[in-house]
Design a protein around this nucleic acid. Structure first.
Lengths: 347, 347
DNA sequence: TCTTAGCACTCATTTCGTTCAAGTGCTAAT
DNA sequence: ATTAGCACTTGAACGAAATGAGTGCTAAGA
């Protein structure tokens, strides 16, 4: 069967109506309210066709139709026209991003928070996988009389740090020695390499100088292996009022996704076609996600992934608006990341 | 009416039964299963009395009784006997706390995570209010060619840090000057004092040396004012299966508490009688909390508050077990915090 | 050949009465 | 003071009937 223009128009109308009401859409509604000059009967025939083609679904025989994931996919890819952000909206986003957030993890969290407020869905954010990063610099900083802070600057610009409390005061010059030695040994090395091979060796070398190297190296190891890919979710609250979550079963499923985070992590890690990825309903094969859509935007610096932001909301999502929003924000952040990087340096 | 021993025994039995089943408890159940040598009719009379005294409630005329908040309060304060942790359980907790987590925020999060796993309820954690802290030390650390990390050690041992990306490379000796100057000016000063008064002055003084002082001071300000009292919630998932959350209305209320966090923040901040505080149901006057109990434990170093951990669960909570657990964990952490502080320093 | 009016049919939802069982409160006997 | 006995209350479960939204199909009209 051919997907002619009338079918597209009808599908579009159904999606728009369904997005607004979350109720199955009847033929008469489309016939009367959407300016298509056909009788309900004709619409009905077309709806039957669209269902046969997999773009619509029918909850039960005597109900209206709702868009299937395939229907939404078609809509997103071929039918809808993205609604550009107004200048006002853009200015808003720009303004929020003005402030100097240099610590990347914070930037990504902040961005995700903005996103959830902007879209009124829940937002998700995840740091990068650091395994393949290399060490650009290590610094040990003495704090007070008994604390040492380890700071690692990675080649993707991300800074990781942690504080170790020592048993006794460490002389300043010991710190200096550690510092030099660690940099000498570890600079340029891969995170994974370091914790797989070299640790024990260094520990032995430095143990004679100061036994406090032991907890220090433990913490260093911890810093290197620590999952940076923690998933942050924000704005869950936005979704709680959705009619699709009124059934406590769906709500449970949703909370399960949000709480366990494994599924989200999995999704955010993959992503194949460019920065922006859209997963509509059962496209992901995670059953719990079948009523939800996730849209992600991957951030990178010089081709190195540094994190991902995104939103999760009902399949019945305002794609026309949400997609441009996430794109704009994603690009704005991208620019902000690259800004000081090397390019213009203008503020 | 007098609260005699038999009444207490019956109340105890009812609470125990209700805690196990989450169903209204009938007189016959108590009479047969709880070794009280009375007939259902007698129990029934006593139940009526207990209700009159406010310790029990009746969902509707022909139902059994459930304990009221007042009933639970009496039970917790005067009736139940805390069930001491087994040696095994204590060892378990000790073992988990072994690892060297020096950054306080992480320690408190970790502790709350343990708590949620130990109790099977949701756990909450909150950092301290830093407003009244004083600066013990400030360090600026140069990272790479264009980044500066600001590190502040507060008098309660908490370390705060942030990274600023600069417009151009800052010479090592400028950093040194900043460092000395900031320490000279700010050491011993109160967080609030600093951001209220002195900032602008310093900025002027140092602007001539290097204009990058501007974003630096902005970030410093941000570090000082930043709400450290963020509330972390963990293990929400544990509660989702509870029968009391089967009604989507209660679930919504619960999620609202968890998401907005204001209520929790409020509670965690107050707390009047010692480290441990127990809020049972409507004792808090937050209506959404009326079906829940929150137990908190306040952590401090040398009388300075450094954070709070706690749990949130159904009113029908296993108090006998939970309270000793939270006490033990709280004290263990307390010890861990104080450990390196100045006392013995033994590992 | 495409469109549509008309109508029978399906099925979720609502409503209402009935039954059922759990559990109480009260009275009277012990 | 305790308790057996019994009437009474009430939520929950079940089923039948009514309701109504919306479809699918047929046959007539453009």
């Amino acid at each position: 069967m051919l997907l002619d223009d009338r079918k597209r128009k009808i599908l579009e109308a159904i999606i728009e109506e369904y997005n607004a009401t979350a109720e199955p859409v009847s033929s008469s509604k489309i016939a009367t309210d959407y300016g298509l000059d056909y009788s309900p009967a004709t619409i009905r025939n077309e709806m039957a066709n669209l269902e046969e083609m997999g773009y619509l679904e029918q909850p039960h025989t005597s109900a209206g139709r709702i868009p299937s994931s395939k229907g939404y996919r078609l809509y997103v890819d071929n039918i809808m026209k993205e609604k550009n952000l107004t200048i006002k909206e853009k200015e808003n986003i720009d303004a929020i991003l003005q402030s100097d957030i240099a610590k990347f993890e914070n930037l990504i969290k902040e961005a995700s928070n903005i996103l959830s407020r902007l879209t009124n869905y829940a937002s998700i954010a995840m740091g990068p996988d650091m395994e393949s990063c290399t060490v650009e610099e290590i610094k040990l900083v003495k704090l007070g009389h008994d604390k040492l802070m380890i700071v690692i600057l990675a080649d993707n610009g991300i800074v990781k740090e942690s504080v170790v409390k020592c048993q006794e005061e460490i002389p300043e010059d010991n710190v200096e020695i550690f510092n030099r030695y660690l940099n000498y040994k570890l600079r340029g090395m891969n995170f994974r390499e370091i914790y797989e091979n070299i640790n024990e060796y260094i520990e032995k070398e430095l143990y004679q100088i100061n036994t406090n190297i032991v907890p220090l190296m433990m913490e260093l190891n911890h810093l290197l292996t620590e999952q940076n890919s923690n998933v942050y979710v924000d704005g869950t609250k936005n979704l709680l009022d959705l009619p699709e979550l009124k059934k406590s079963e769906t709500l449970q499923k949703f909370l399960n996704i949000i709480e366990t985070k494994d599924v989200i992590k999995e999704l955010l890690k993959n992503g194949y076609d460019g920065n922006i990825n859209i997963y509509i309903g059962q496209e992901t094969s995670f059953d719990d996600l079948k009523d939800f859509t996730i849209i992600t935007y991957k951030q990178s610096i010089h081709d190195k992934e540094v994190g991902t932001i995104g939103i999760i909301g009902p399949k019945r999502m305002d794609y026309k608006k949400v997609i441009p929003t996430i794109k704009y924000l994603g690009e704005a952040i991208q620019q902000k990341i690259n800004q000081g990087g090397e390019a213009d340096g203008r503020k």
